[in-house]
Write a protein that binds this DNA or RNA. Structure first.
Lengths: 337, 337
DNA sequence: GAGCGGAATGACAGCGCTTGCATTAAGCGT
DNA sequence: ACGCTTAATGCAAGCGCTGTCATTCCGCTC
């Protein structure tokens, strides 16, 4: 408690050992005897000592820090959920997280232009968008390990779900309820970002085709943003053979569709079944049926993998695929004939 | 582009100057001539150089890092929005952010027990809960500047809104619409955390009293969580003189109340007016009228203040109060008589 | 009892920057 | 032309740790 900003030297003096021993004891090195560890720990406690990480990083070359690139703001539910997982996974390893938000092409260029992580992170986690070959080359030329979240890239370390399969699961469920054929609602792709929505769209198409739907049964509805359910509803109502069910690429879009639909006095699930994707907080509140993906777990696994790569180890599994599950609530029901 | 992990020495050699000059030039010191700065910048660019922050921190004593304590997970909308603001505010100053999540008393004790920020942050931002005197003393004994967000504490640096006044604004609006008298819905307080909800409750009580309501007109409804609108609706329906309007302490709770209410086949705003607090993303989607608070701006201002304090400057204003505004959408309407 | 191996610890040289001070160059008045 | 100020740059000493290598101190063996 006493000294406010004590150094390792002070701890060493108090414990009656050298700074080298203190350093080793605090990191629980097997080179230090148990008795000495006790003494050192006690002295550190009494002096209220905490390692100055900058000095440690300089001496060891390891900065104890993972960087993450997220697409969009932190307040977007998906980003928050991934970050929670990353923090969970890093906490035990006493690593920190540096968050870089990328919302525009300019941001992205700025990041790769200056590559601020260069010597300031031990590994980089990239969520929700693919890197160009150039960007990848630059990272590997500086020896920065890379982990993808929310997408797979041939042979590179990644943690994700199978977006296509997950969507097929949802579509199959709707079809089994008698809906011939469900539509699929999607936000227009962000420029310059490849994005798991592609896999979901593929899954939708593939499943319909597999179940015997024809080309004209495939109805993809476009929104200008995740809160633009209104456009989706307008397209829905304008369709010749109006679908009795729609699956949205995200819960946020699904909720927006629900709001626009009920605002017109129409009912859910009676007049339209809605199926979401994610299982975010408010899905339960509004009784939204959805394909749940374990987003926070994605983050945890990514953290673990990044730590392994940073330590120079080869992860047991380079491409981790986590399971999704169908969560049935009150926005889906069998087609009334 | 060439060398992957170049040091300042390499830049110095290439620019034909000393490392000291490089260091100064990169930080835009007035001690360096413009011509030299150009040369250094060019050399740094060619070598793809980025300062190794750990070394810089060790030499200067400033770590270039602000720590923030948040209550609950990152995926909670409020936390995400504050973090976005903090990142905005720190970006220009090239500072980083260390996030510490506190969800339990144990977390809190762990944080203050080891005080990991001790030498690893230049300032600490605390959101949504008050510190004990002990905790404050420990921080000030190590000279760690402190900024509160989302609450005010006598004379300490803080950035917040006036929760009581904001709530009074909302209640007054409902009363002016003819609702005699609105109820107030709140989540049971988290143990050990003081929390801006107190101010909102006070505001509710004060405004009703000020407008001439009697004690029995004050109806505070309790939810077990922000997604427990169900309990609130049950309490509402059980009330003798059923209120025609309810204000919730957060949009999340308001949305949950709306969901529970409409699930019963009741209408909004016809049978019940609902007013939220926050103006989060989905408020617009669901047409929720609400008292909007500038959460991201709270974060930006907190970042600016933290940077000032870290630099040893005294902020112009120690207690910043940001304005709120009423956002009228479709969940509120004049009482039909 | 001398020699030896292994376990535990200490001494010390950096890691890559920043910064106070010394030094040099340039400008200027007389 | 000569000192003198001011501007620009270089020199070198750390910052607080880590990791290599050397040293000490055991208990054993022969």
């Amino acid at each position: 408690m006493s000294s406010a900003r004590s150094r390792m030297e002070d701890v060493a003096a108090r414990a009656g050992v050298s700074v080298a021993t203190v350093s080793r004891a605090l990191r629980d090195s097997p080179l230090v005897s148990d008795a000495t560890k006790q003494k050192v720990l006690a002295a550190a406690e009494e002096l209220d000592f905490a390692v100055f990480r900058a000095a440690s990083a300089l001496a060891s070359g390891r900065v104890g820090r993972i960087a993450v690139l997220i697409s969009g703001p932190v307040r977007a539910w998906f980003n928050g959920a991934v970050l929670d997982g990353l923090y969970d996974g890093l906490r035990a390893a006493e690593h920190e997280l540096s968050v870089y938000r990328v919302t525009s092409l300019a941001d992205r260029e700025a990041f790769f232009g200056t590559l601020p992580v260069r010597r300031n992170a031990d590994a980089l986690v990239v969520t929700s968008f693919a890197l160009t070959t150039d960007e990848r080359d630059r990272l590997s030329s500086i020896g920065m390990p890379l982990v993808y979240v929310n997408q797979q890239v041939e042979g590179l370390p990644s943690v994700s779900i199978d977006d296509a399969a997950a969507t097929r699961l949802g579509i199959r469920y709707l079809v089994n309820l008698g809906h011939r054929w469900p539509a699929f609602a999607q936000v227009d792709a962000r420029i310059g970002f490849t994005y798991s929505a592609l896999g979901r769209l593929d899954g939708y198409r593939a499943e319909l085709a597999g179940l015997g739907a024809t080309a004209s049964d495939v109805r993809v509805l476009r929104a200008r943003g995740a809160d633009d359910g209104e456009s989706v509803v307008a397209q829905l109502l304008g369709l010749a053979d109006r679908p009795s069910a729609v699956m949205a690429e995200s819960d946020e879009l699904a909720l927006s569709i629900m709001a626009a639909w009920t605002r017109l006095g129409l009912r859910i699930p009676d007049d339209l079944c809605v199926l979401g994707f994610d299982d975010q907080t408010l899905a339960e509140t509004f009784g939204l049926s959805t394909v749940a993906q374990p987003v926070t777990e994605l983050g945890r696994r990514a953290a673990a993998m990044a730590l392994q790569l940073a330590a120079g180890e080869e992860p047991a599994q380079r491409e981790v695929l986590l399971p999704v599950r169908l969560v049935l609530r009150r926005t889906t029901a069998a087609l009334r004939r």
